[in-house]
Design a binder for these strands. Structure first.
Ligand SMILES: [Mn+2]
Ligand SMILES: [Mn+2]
Ligand SMILES: [Zn+2]
Ligand SMILES: [Zn+2]
Lengths: 138, 138
DNA sequence: CAATAAATGCACTTCCATTGCATTGGTTAT
DNA sequence: ATAACCAATGCAATGGAAGTGCATTTATTG
């Protein structure tokens, strides 16, 4: 807990009760979450606060957005030494068509993608869809 | 024109004036379009009709959706022999951060992506963002 | 403690996607 | 040709998520 506080401060984020709770919530989750997920987890809190908290986390590069194709943006904590600031999100994401959950495959980096002449690649979003380990039953 | 009609019929899509126009519109466009793009191109037509036409095209596998991360879904005609039915969208998409347009790079197939044990990959969505050939000035 | 700035909460707005239902138009069977 | 039928269209309304303005509360700083 103390560690989280220090971490947030080190990232230039003021510590508040709400922010600590949301950070903890994200840290405990193994999957990417939607704003509604957070909303449901903290019925008492206002949606706007949650929204702006996530945006703050995003700006300070401790959270990254994931567009998994469902149309609803999801969020997940960045890994240690993730360096979102420099190049965005090198790892790929997996979206389960069965349980509908999306997870970061942080170990799986995105391969180099060739683009035609004249095109400049700045960053890459790669989402694999299928059946996750929990749902595939092994 | 006659050819389009026959094509639609071959795909089990009834030919109507609107559908022909929308098909032609898509065929002439070099880029993926939003519903609003179509809406603007056909001021007279109702938004719902355009929406349902696109959905019909999608169901019949002559159009595919593209989620380029902008939050607005885009659509593009499938290539000849695209086989969306079987495995979705093997080619990658490019989204230009400058002109905001998204195009199909149908020549550029998505490489095989490894996923961890227990995960089953059913399909892959790959969007590269950067500067397109027109905007990069060559 | 006073002054100031940031965080929170509430209300409202916008934008896109989607649906229900009445109407129109085209197809098929009598 | 007419009636019966079904699909396509148009209009209105809804829903969901994202985002903004402003007043209020809470934290910081001098
Ligand atoms: Mn991730
Ligand atoms: Mn495409
Ligand atoms: Zn699953
Ligand atoms: Zn461009």
């Amino acid at each position: 807990m103390k560690i989280i506080e220090e971490f947030l401060e080190s990232k230039d984020i003021r510590v508040t009760a709400m922010r600590l709770l949301i950070y903890k919530f994200l840290a405990e989750k193994q999957v990417a979450v939607t704003l509604s997920d957070i909303e449901n987890a903290f019925e008492k809190a206002d949606r706007t606060t949650l929204y702006r908290t996530i945006k703050t986390f995003e700006e300070k590069d401790i959270v990254h957005q994931i567009g998994d194709g469902t149309g609803i943006t999801k969020y997940a904590l960045c890994e240690k030494g993730c360096n979102c600031e420099i190049e965005t999100d090198l790892h790929l994401h997996f979206h389960c068509n069965n349980c509908n959950e999306t997870i970061c495959l942080t170990e799986h980096k995105i391969p180099q993608i060739k683009v035609p002449d004249g095109f400049v690649s700045e960053n890459v979003n790669l989402v694999v869809k299928g059946i996750c380990d929990k749902c595939s039953g092994q």
